[in-house]
């Protein structure tokens, strides 16, 4: 990605996790914009409406009531190519189940798979690897 990491979307049904992750992201970069969504449906609505700011990075949980992470990915894949080309997805979940890890690898839009909690080091690494500093 040839962009600067500016806006990050969190998709997690657990509001505490969203709070901690937002806090970590702000600690990493106080200027980051964080959009917290408590379900895949809400997140999709936001993405489809093409509201600004546009999210450069999505942290996606797997186990969520209603639409889970995998179902979100299926829906996300149907979105506009241009929109998708400006966004990367990182799985952020409690599950270190190898089955889930293998499953995530099958999705080309998913670039990383990390387990909770998100740390400043993880943020640093993702930013370095996928965005212009």
């Amino acid at each position: 990605m040839n962009t600067k990491l500016r806006c990050i979307m969190l998709i997690d049904d657990n509001p505490h996790d969203n709070f901690f992750h937002e806090r970590t992201i702000k600690k990493y970069d106080i200027n980051s914009i964080v959009i917290s969504k408590s379900s895949g449906t809400e997140a999709l609505e936001y993405l489809k409406s093409q509201k600004e700011p546009h999210s450069d990075l999505i942290f996606l949980d797997i186990n969520m009531p209603g639409m889970n992470g995998w179902e979100f990915l299926r829906e996300y894949n149907l979105l506009d190519e241009e929109l998708k080309s400006r966004t990367i997805i990182v799985m952020l979940t409690t599950s270190d189940n190898p089955n889930d890890i293998a499953k995530a690898k099958k999705w080309s839009v998913v670039v990383e798979y990390i387990t909770k909690p998100l740390t400043i080091e993880m943020m640093q690494e993702i930013s370095n690897r996928y965005f212009i500093q």
């Binding site: 657990n14 505490h16 996790d17 901690f20 806090r23 409690t94 909770k116 909690p117």
Partner: peptide
Amino acid sequence: EPLRTVSNYMKV
């Protein structure tokens, strides 16, 4: 899950 939440708040 809840334990991690407790732990996270402790860190805060």
